[in-house]
Amino acid sequence: MIAKEFEDFLLQHLDHYLIAADDLAIFIDSHNTDHVMLLLANNGYSRVPVITKDKKYVGTISISDILSYKAKHQLTDWEMSKMDIAEMVNTKIETISDQASLTETMHKLIDYSFLPVVDNQGTFIGIITRKSILKAVNSLLHDFTDYYTITPHD
């Protein structure tokens, strides 16, 4: 459990943790592989969230997910170019609720560089990155005593 004072301090930066869906590169599950490969390669994104047209979270996609699918199913470049990414989406990255506690968020971020945030209907809200949490922890470590006095227990 996170000490209440630390949690309060970190939660002051909460609006900085979430990168809203509107500010992200996102793919629709019906996008074709050529389009997705081109955007991933040209923009340097390693992994991008995938949603449905009605903004429901599906998973994430990367170049390696597409190439793995191609190899597993022994598809040609031409066959791949006609497919959408729905079948290739990686669903292994855990999501987090928009109501999740800071403790749960931090525990899940240990294994992933970002967590997709969804509401209780599965609508994609955005992502929380490990980087944003580490920035807040860095601020905590440097600025905590500007707000709190630390006294040791006897």
Rank of each mutant, 00 (worst) to 15 (best):
L10P: 05
Q12D: 13
Q12F: 13
L14D: 12
D15A: 11
H16R: 15
H16Y: 14
Y17H: 04
Y17R: 03
Y17V: 01
L18D: 04
L18F: 08
I19W: 08
A20H: 15
A20S: 14
A20D: 15
D23M: 08
L24W: 06
L24R: 09
A25N: 02
A25D: 06
I26C: 05
S30F: 01
S30D: 12
H31M: 11
H31G: 00
N32S: 03
N32W: 04
D34G: 00
D34T: 15
V36F: 11
M37H: 04
L38E: 13
L39W: 04
L40P: 00
A41S: 13
Y45I: 03
S46Q: 11
R47C: 11
V48Q: 10
P49H: 08
P49M: 07
T52N: 07
D54M: 01
I61S: 06
S64D: 11
S68C: 02
Y69W: 11
Y69M: 04
K70I: 07
Q74T: 04
L75F: 07
E79S: 12
M80D: 10
K82E: 13
I85C: 04
I85E: 10
I85P: 02
M88R: 03
V89F: 05
T91A: 11
T91E: 14
T91V: 15
I93W: 06
I93C: 10
T95Q: 09
T95R: 09
I96P: 01
S97N: 10
S97D: 11
D98T: 01
Q99L: 10
A100S: 15
S101V: 02
L102H: 04
E104W: 00
T105H: 00
T105C: 13
K108M: 08
K108W: 02
L109G: 02
L109N: 03
L109C: 04
D111Q: 12
Y112T: 07
S113A: 06
L115T: 01
V117P: 05
V118G: 05
V118Y: 03
D119H: 06
G122M: 08
G122S: 09
F124S: 07
F124R: 10
I125N: 09
G126N: 07
G126Y: 08
I127C: 00
S132K: 15
I133K: 08
L134F: 15
L134T: 14
L134D: 10
K135N: 13
K135I: 13
K135P: 00
V137W: 05
V137M: 13
N138D: 15
S139M: 12
S139N: 13
L140F: 15
L140T: 09
